[in-house]
């Protein structure tokens, strides 16, 4: 009886939010994905049904396959950088909460997340510059050879991982900081009495207790990693006479296909594939980070 009451409360409470979602997310998404089986040029009144033709074409499309690989590498790369770095950084900042600089730390780490990309990209182009950039200066100082960061097919992908991580680090740190602050303090006091040092209690207590938060950060960074496109676009644009290799990513390919090549159905088919892949990956993340409280 009690369960029944709870069930109806849950349904009634979530209904308004679900209704808004239905209107501003589910409806337009379904409208768009439906087009993956059609051909439409954005303007014409007829949208002929073409079955799976768009999908069949996609798998023999080099440009799409290239975009898919690049995007996956960027998403996993950015995730691999962001999660450990933001967790450790948040731990240190949390440890120094009482420091008079804590406000500065949090702000400095977070601000890159909210700055417009186009003017900031100029600095990044300078950092990656093959001849005069600080990155190559460091490498050469260490005895290495200067690398064509923005032009090599592999290195240019790494540049994007750099840029994405710079932007998402602040996001991760913010979330982890909240997580740290919400951890039950009594457990740590007990551990301290048992002689655990700061590092041990971080590794054996905080990390497992923060599993739900880690799940959140990893899902969010992976999904946003698969959504990158502005970063790839600004690094290739030729402001200041410093162009770079255009790294093709999925969203860039989709937007180009719908708004410049006028193949909305084809772009929708790409979106269906993106949705299937990322949904599967997210399910795997949920499975991996399950455990006590790790739903």
């Amino acid at each position: 009886m009690l369960r029944r009451k709870q069930f109806w409360f849950a349904i009634m409470a979530i209904l308004p939010t679900f209704a808004i979602f239905g209107w501003v997310r589910l409806f337009p998404i379904i409208e768009t994905l439906r087009l993956s089986m059609h051909e439409w040029n954005l303007l014409s009144k007829n949208k002929p049904f073409v079955g799976f033709q768009n999908f069949i074409e996609l798998f023999s499309d080099n440009q799409f396959m290239d975009a898919l690989t690049n995007t996956a590498v960027i998403a996993f790369g950015a995730m691999a950088v962001t999660i450990p770095m933001s967790m450790v950084l948040a731990a240190i900042i949390y440890h120094r909460t009482r420091s008079r600089f804590s406000g500065f730390y949090e702000t400095a780490v977070f601000i890159p997340h909210v700055v417009s990309l186009v003017p900031a990209a100029m600095a990044w182009k300078w950092i990656f510059d093959a001849k005069l950039g600080p990155l190559n200066a460091i490498i050469m100082g260490l005895g290495g050879d200067a690398l064509p960061w923005l032009f090599d097919p592999v290195l240019s992908v790494i540049c994007i991982i750099f840029l994405v991580s710079w932007q998402t680090l602040g996001y991760g740190v913010l979330i982890y900081l909240v997580g740290f602050r919400n951890l039950p303090k009594s457990v740590f006091e007990a551990a301290q009495l048992d002689g655990a040092n700061g590092f041990q209690s971080f590794l054996y207590m905080s990390v497992p207790l923060l599993k739900p938060i880690t799940l959140y950060v990893s899902v969010v960074t992976l999904i946003s990693g698969f959504n990158v496109y502005a970063q790839a676009y600004v690094l290739a644009s030729d402001t200041q006479g410093a162009p770079g290799r255009q790294v093709r990513v999925l969203v860039l390919d989709m937007l180009e296909n719908s708004f410049q090549n006028f193949r909305v159905g084809y772009a929708a088919a790409e979106a269906v594939i993106l949705l299937s892949i990322v949904l599967l990956l997210t399910m795997i993340q949920f499975g991996l980070l399950r455990g006590k409280g790790g739903r």
């Binding site: 064509p148 923005l150 200041q240 006479g241 410093a242 162009p243």
Partner: peptide, 15 residues
């Protein structure tokens, strides 16, 4: 070369 500065900006900088 591919890495060299290019376009209007390079011309204006005498590159």
């Amino acid at each position: 070369t591919v890495e060299m500065p290019a376009d209007a900006a390079a011309f204006q900088r005498e590159q």
